[in-house]
Design a protein around this nucleic acid. Sequence first.
DNA 1: ACTATATAGTCAAGCTACTTGACCACTTGG
DNA 2: CCAAGTGGTCAAGTAGCTTGACTATATAGT
Lengths: 148, 148
Amino acid sequence: MQNSEAMALSSALLAVAGGLTQRIHEGVIARGFEGLRPAHGFAFARLAPDGATVTDLAAHLGVTKQAASQLVDELVRKGYVERRPHPGDARARLIVLTGRGRDCTRAAEEAAAEAVREWVEMLGEPEVRSLGERLLRIAPHGPIRPAW
Amino acid sequence: MQNSEAMALSSALLAVAGGLTQRIHEGVIARGFEGLRPAHGFAFARLAPDGATVTDLAAHLGVTKQAASQLVDELVRKGYVERRPHPGDARARLIVLTGRGRDCTRAAEEAAAEAVREWVEMLGEPEVRSLGERLLRIAPHGPIRPAW
DNA sequence: ACTATATAGTCAAGCTACTTGACCACTTGG
DNA sequence: CCAAGTGGTCAAGTAGCTTGACTATATAGT
């Protein structure tokens, strides 16, 4: 496979990812959740199941824990998450989504589904499904880098 | 297709895109081009064929033209691009890559090809190729958003 | 049990890429 | 040929990140 092909693939991938990010972001706003940036969505994704510590969040986002702490401050102020004492470690705090935070996560999922639905219209469901499977197999495990 | 499937697809897509961005960035640095951020790569991509104006660049990157102008300042200072008078419009300037800028672009292509090669090892060439084709068909035309 | 080292989190200050607002130079259309 | 529009830059402010310093709790070694 030639460099030029690899570059075409890379460009397409990054364009699709950028477009999707923007679509989700706009969809979340359209559903009434304001004052959020795309980076917050990545935080929500980490917090979704059972909460996480600030340090976990920092690693997931690929930023310092100070930055993660500031982000949590902001989300607390806006009512999306709350800090709870951590069971089993008195130094740590467990950051968990509030009801509003879970509503917002659902809104993001709807917005993502909306974008994916358009892909299904263009490619058909089987192709989109296999696209997802292949992406899943090559997805890295490390921190989600929230910037490029 | 359910929301949860759409979200899994979205997450995988964004993870792959984030990982790829990081890989390219690291590869460019490893080849001796320092002081660059991923956003510069997107600028290079727009400048590559025949150059572009600051306004074009701003639209492509999804930022204000002031921000694009500052970015160009930086790239000029570091020797990657130069400002030339624009043929046919005395207000505008044509921003073009220098030799070093083209070298850097090639380095980015090599780094991208390296990452794609790993995907080929995991999925096989036909699957990666069809992945690229499908992504190309759903890629948006608008500005590349350099932030999420 | 006691000390030493590591870890979770925050506070404070500084940096940097971006924004908005103002402005000049040139182009285009009536 | 004048009015409005466009390309670009200068200047100042902002927001999200960084590094550095610190406290509180946990863990390991002797």
